[in-house]
Computed example of a mutant assay.
Amino acid sequence: MTATITRDELRTAIEAGEVTVVETLRDQHFAEGHLPGAIHIHFEEIGARAAELLPDKERPIVTYCSNTACRNSEIAANKLRSMGYVNVRKYAEGKQDWEEAGLPLEVPTAG
């Protein structure tokens, strides 16, 4: 079972720059808004893209998707652990919880 992180713990870690946050949804969902500073790796692409985008296997990583019903973050976290990443947790409540708490999402700017 993947270790989890609470919204408040994640917010603190993001603000301190202590974590790499990975959204595991499809491209269009990431483009519509993502957690501050998050990078995008669709859960099916973890094996192909993690080494390039997550070079430090010791750095804390948090995966997330849309909500508790979504399994993408769990699948991604398990794959990362199997690849030797040692500090991986998931934000099980996901983007829905973040938004419902009134916290901002980042939207990529064109240009």
Rank of each mutant, 00 (worst) to 15 (best):
Thr4Val: 09
Ile5Gly: 03
Ile5Pro: 00
Arg7Phe: 05
Leu10Trp: 02
Arg11Glu: 13
Arg11Tyr: 14
Ile14Asp: 05
Glu15Ser: 06
Gly17Tyr: 09
Val19Lys: 00
Val19His: 00
Thr20Cys: 03
Val21Gln: 03
Val22Cys: 06
Val22Gly: 04
Glu23Phe: 06
Glu23Pro: 00
Leu25Ser: 06
Leu25Asn: 08
Arg26Trp: 09
Arg26His: 08
Asp27Ser: 12
Gln28Lys: 10
Gly33Arg: 01
His34Phe: 02
Leu35Thr: 11
Leu35Gly: 04
Ala38Ile: 02
Ile39Gly: 03
Glu44Asn: 13
Glu45Asn: 14
Gly47Leu: 07
Ala51Tyr: 02
Ala51Phe: 07
Lys57Val: 08
Glu58Asp: 15
Pro60Ser: 06
Ile61Tyr: 02
Tyr64Trp: 01
Tyr64Ile: 02
Arg71Asp: 15
Ser73His: 07
Ala76Asn: 09
Ala76Gly: 08
Lys79Leu: 07
Lys79Phe: 05
Arg81Asn: 07
Ser82Met: 12
Ser82Asn: 12
Met83Ile: 08
Met83Val: 09
Tyr85Asp: 04
Glu93Ser: 10
Lys95Trp: 11
Gln96His: 10
Glu99Cys: 06
Glu100Leu: 14
Ala101Gly: 05
Leu103Phe: 13
Pro104Gln: 14
Pro104Lys: 09
Leu105Gly: 13
Val107Tyr: 06
Gly111Leu: 09
Gly111Gln: 08
